[in-house]
Design a protein around this nucleic acid. Structure first.
Length: 107
DNA sequence: GATTTGACTACTA
DNA sequence: GTAGTAGCCAAAT
């Protein structure tokens, strides 16, 4: 409860991402108060596997699927995104800012 | 307890 | 617009 508090929060926020929306690591980190800890969010996602965390909805600031390599399948992340109605080209989400979901603004 | 790593972000050239 | 470097924080080793 004390050491994984940060991770848990990241998972919670990630789970709150609505269908058809995406967010960035920095946005989550900022929402958690760890403003410059965008990397920590990515690190937390390392443990998101086997959890209910839609990590495929979390991408970097450019909307690029940087973490797709961490998924089981090479194109699993892109497949999931495309399944949700995203337009993914070359591992990058098109109209990213349009799909961008900010926890601080939405929550 | 110190070092390394890591799915990032922002600034500068 | 692209490329490289620096800064950031937290967990794992």
């Amino acid at each position: 409860m004390s050491s994984e508090g940060f991770f848990e929060k990241v998972y919670q926020v990630a789970k709150l991402i609505p269908y058809g929306r995406v967010t960035s690591y920095g946005a989550i980190a900022n929402y958690l108060g760890a403003k410059g800890s965008a990397r920590i969010v990515g690190w937390a996602m390392n443990g998101s596997v086997n959890k209910d965390v839609p990590a495929h909805r979390v991408v970097n600031r450019n909307g690029l699927l940087t973490g797709k390599h961490h998924f089981q399948g090479t194109n699993l992340m892109q497949q999931l995104l495309e399944s949700e109605g995203f337009e993914v080209v070359d591992n990058k989400i098109q109209n990213f800012e349009k799909y961008f979901w900010d926890p601080m603004k939405e929550l």
